[in-house]
Structure formats: C-alpha cells, structure tokens
Design a protein around this nucleic acid. Sequence first.
DNA 1: TATATCTCCTGCGGGC
DNA 2: TGCCCGCAGGAGATAT
Length: 290
Amino acid sequence: MPELPEVEVVRRGLAEHVVGRVIESVVVTHPRSVRRHLEGAADLAARLTGLRVASAERRGKYLWLTFDDPETSLVVHLGMSGQMLVQPVDAPAEKHAHIRAGLDDDTELRFVDQRTFGGWQLAPLLEVDGTMVPEPVAHIARDPLDPLFDADVAVKALRAKQTEIKRVLLDQSVLSGVGNIYADESLWRAGLHGGRLASGLSRTAMHGLLTEVGAVMGEALAAGGTSFDALYVNVNGQSGYFERSLAVYGREDEPCRRCGAAIRREKFMNRSSYSCPRCQPKPAARATRP
DNA sequence: TATATCTCCTGCGGGC
DNA sequence: TGCCCGCAGGAGATAT
C-alpha cells in the first residue's frame, strides 16, 4: 500500500529514468485507470503524445509529471496497488498493465494496477500557497517532507478537528502523505491511542506526534519503503525493506517492542488499527468511537 | 459547514 | 476441487 515514502521512491525513479524523455505513444487498455480524466482515454493519449517530460513532482501520495508544455501536467495516484514501471519496450506486459507510454529511448512507462484504485489524468497547474500544483492536488495539504512544511500550521489544523486523531491523520487536506500503516506506527511511537480526540491533545503532544510522523516516514524512505507483497515496487520492480522495522502494523498478538504487551487489532473506519494496549491506553469512552 | 459512512475493485486465504 | 466470504484500504461521493 503506497504511502508517502513509497510514492517518493517512485518519484525519484521517474526523475532518473523518465525526465528528459519524449512520450512517443500512449495506449490505455483499462478505462477505469483514466476515469478521472473526464475527456477520456483517447484525449489523454493524444495530448500526451509528443510531450517531453520536464520534471517529476510529488505532494503527499500524489505524483505528477510536468512537460515542456507548461499548460499540462500528468497527475498519477497509485491508489492501493498502482505501480509505475520503466521497462524495455519488448518486455512482456504485466498482467495488470493498464496504460503503456512508449518513450524515445526504447523503454515504456507502464501503469500497472491490480485493484484499479489508482489512475492517470491530465490537469492544468495552479498556484496554491506559492507553489504550482495540478488542480486535483490543490486541496491536498503539504506533507512532512515538504521543505515548506510548517509544523505550527499543521498542529493548529490538526487540533481544530473535533474527531479522533487517527481520522485526522488520514485526512489528506489537513496533513498529507499519511496512510493506515504510518498512522499506526506514528501513534505507537508517540504513545497515543488513535481514538483520542484531536482537539483534546495539547500543542506539545501534537508537535510530538508530528515529529514521530516525520521520523517514521524518513526512516521508511531510507529503507526504500514498506512492502508486504509484490504490490509495491519502485520503477525497477524492486521492493523496500521497512516492513521489517514496523512496530505495530500487522503484528496482532505479537509482543510490543517497548513493553512486551500483546499488540491488539481493532476496527476503525472499516479498516484495521494496531496498537499497544499498555503504551497506548484507550481514552475515556466519551472520546472513543467503536 | 463539519463529520461519518459508503463505494469502488481484485486477489488471496480460510472454511465448508 | 470448487465455491463463498471476508479482508486489504485511498479517496471521492453521499449521508447525517
């Protein structure tokens, strides 16, 4: 499941292998992968063809390519299972390769997506808070690895929410880049249960939590990301190693690495949450939702 | 307006 | 062996 570190690994790969290349052809074989491009697959293919890639950018979990045509950007979201692979043009197509863009160096940029939650779309660039971003990314907050990330602003936005802190961590319009895995890891490091009310945390506690979010993401990025299966890989098809460093996610009934208590798994927002019952005590019932 | 819930999708594993 | 069901979860749509 690609979160910020995994997406950044992919962005770096695109910067190395795709920037400077000219797109010579585009073939879309699964319409759902371009469902957010309302003008349709043929329009996307026609407008991409002939463009030279100028840069690979990222905010949170969104990726985009810019081109020598400053009016256009290609926005990519990997969803749960999306991959951006750079392969020799004659390499066998992957089972779920839904978009193939031929480049001018006899390679292909392929969008492979088993669960089809991700996709490509073309969008104009807008200036938001002093930074040019594609229109679909305009509502996404800066992420903790953004050089212009302001922790004080983020703490204020997080504490303004009258709901559980984990729900707010997953809200990309408040703080971007955090998904289910790193939310659980950050909360464990901060010693906070995800059911705590965001507005009930002190500034100091929220700053501490943000510090842990940045730390866990930085460590994951250094390890090349987290991988549970073949669904997350970089542009060369290689997996990361951070899974080995996860303290709580996916470790139900295993001992907490801090206190030894058995890690618990709970349902939250129709997905699993992992925490330590001793290090992360549940808040009073009034502030907890099942 | 803010918050909560539903829906999309596919492959895997477990149970029968 | 084959079928059914639950699970995984990002984010937009819809409901409250």
